[in-house]
Computed example of a mutant assay.
Amino acid sequence: MTTTSTAITPELRAWIVAQAEAGFPPEDVLAAMRSSGWPEDTAIEAMETTLTEHLQAKGKPIPGRALPEPPMDEAATTLVVGGHEVKVLMSMTLPRVVVFGGLLTDAECDELIELSRPRLVRSETVINETGGSEVNTARTSDGMFFNRAEYPLCQRIEQRIAELVRWPEVNGEGLQVLRYRPGAEYKPHHDYFDPIHPGTPTILSRGGQRVGTLVMYLNTPTRGGATTFPDVGLEVAPVKGNAVFFSYHAPHVATKTLHGGAPVLEGEKWVATKWLREREFI
């Protein structure tokens, strides 16, 4: 195998699986990739995602894969985080989805909207070829990003989320606030970054793969605007203060985390999104 490209191709994935099935240890496979010109970070990511997908396709467990997860071992209906009570309204295993009630107070929702309003611009999506971003017709909202802990409110919410899903604060991207006007939507998509795209290594260099998403509803639109999961026929109503959390153990469609924002039919929809990375986000 010889290459100078960093694109994780189907041929590379097949080669990695073949080496694993032949019994070669991971460190030998990694060394072979490095000697063929692959950057170490890209080689590690290629091995991890390829072998994860391979194990899942065979119905085998994925060893050592930590994910954000609420403390629901005893089927709790109420969780207390930082003195704040959060209701568990719904839970699914595949996809891993949990709907929370009252994650944010009405006052927190209103303040977050007002802090974000002056900085709203047309939302963008990732450019797979470069790792940059651009305006896309699939996403017709306005949005902005806060830096992590930019305001006391942001820090309080981030601490609450970290405790709720048991994931380090530093592994989270800054909060993103989005406004959907009547007719605006976000067509179904995945939040993970597909390793097959050439721009993915650039994105992953800031904190590794995304492994979880939390969408918080900052208001209740008059009609429409549900968060949809087409693979499983699930729709989560956008109710002020509530939130939907979902995680994905691999960048693969088998996680069934395809989701979208249905068109707003009347009124506006405001949401705040928190994406969680596998390592510290920089």
Rank of each mutant, 00 (worst) to 15 (best):
G207D: 01
D73N: 14
Q19N: 06
A76Q: 15
L12I: 13
E185T: 04
A184F: 02
L112F: 00
I8Y: 05
T140R: 14
M92K: 12
F145W: 13
P188R: 03
E185Y: 11
P221K: 01
D142A: 14
H259F: 08
T273M: 09
S247Y: 04
H190Y: 15
G261C: 05
E266Q: 11
G82Y: 13
T228N: 08
Y217N: 06
M90W: 11
A162N: 01
I203L: 14
D73W: 11
E173D: 10
W167K: 09
Y180E: 06
P61C: 08
W15C: 07
P182E: 11
P39K: 08
P39N: 07
T93D: 09
Y192K: 01
W270H: 02
T227I: 08
R13W: 04
T222H: 08
V211A: 05
P198A: 05
A14R: 13
I44L: 14
V253D: 07
T213F: 01
V121E: 10
A254W: 03
I157G: 04
T93C: 04
E11N: 10
L79I: 14
A75M: 06
R117G: 04
P188G: 07
V232P: 05
W270S: 06
A18G: 10
V253N: 03
E21A: 14
V253S: 08
L178G: 02
W38Q: 12
D28F: 12
S141R: 08
L178E: 03
T42K: 07
V253C: 01
R117M: 10
M92P: 00
